[in-house]
């Protein structure tokens, strides 16, 4: 009986509630991975959090555009990458002294045991074009094709970058161990 008497504004309200619920589900499911992705993109915890907030705000505004729940992850990543690009545009407009920006790098002061710390630092030192596909593969669980699609590259390029990323890490790690060995020995 109540259902039959439901007025237009009730329906609007319940639509809003449904959208709200959907948004909250999206936040719970993806905020952690999206935050980590942002962190490895910008290497700064505070900026990463800012970008994630912007990302989800935009996601909320265009939530109706997300038709397929399976596409949520790439959709959010696309928004996040755009937000990050926007940040650089702003920075350029402000014409700040280059010495003042990007000095802070949370990856270089990571905590944990020695090996994790080393690895964390080395990951931070990788150039972003190598680090980004690696993060997509390891955090997001993307396949080569999915990474290629996300980054708008061809698959061979992606596989080469993944190879180089691990290759560089491996070399840097063994160099580090050598230095350490020499110091200890």
């Amino acid at each position: 009986m109540f259902a039959r008497n439901r007025s237009g504004s009730d329906r609007v309200l319940s639509d809003m509630k449904a959208k709200q619920k959907r948004y909250e589900a999206l936040v719970h499911a993806f905020h952690a991975d999206i935050y980590r992705y942002a962190y490895w993109l910008v290497k700064d915890k505070a900026i990463a959090e800012d970008i994630v907030q912007e990302t989800f705000l935009r996601a909320w505004r265009s939530l109706d555009a997300l038709k397929d729940e399976n596409a949520a992850k790439p959709w959010l990543i696309t928004i996040l990458r755009r937000e990050n690009a926007r940040r650089f545009e702003r920075k350029q407009l402000e014409t700040v002294d280059i010495d003042d920006v990007s000095l802070h790098d949370d990856t270089q002061v990571a905590e944990g045991d020695v090996q994790d710390r080393d690895l964390h630092r080395l990951l931070g030192q990788l150039s972003v074009e190598y680090r980004e596909p690696l993060v997509l593969q390891l955090i997001m669980g993307f396949s080569g094709e999915e990474i290629a699609q996300q980054l708008n590259l061809n698959k061979n390029t992606v596989m080469t970058r993944l190879f180089r990323a691990r290759n560089q890490l491996k070399e840097a790690l063994s160099q580090q161990n050598e230095i350490r060995g020499r110091h200890n020995g």
């Binding site: 909250e24 915890k45 907030q53 909320w60 990571a110 390891l138």
Partner: peptide, 26 residues
């Protein structure tokens, strides 16, 4: 090495981030 990388990449997420995201939206 990959397992180790995964561990390192999985940095800790601020505790209240999910709540913040929901709050800021409303």
């Amino acid at each position: 090495l990959d397992n180790q990388l995964k561990q390192v990449l999985n940095v800790s997420v601020p505790d209240d981030l999910a709540h913040k995201l929901i709050w800021q939206q409303s």
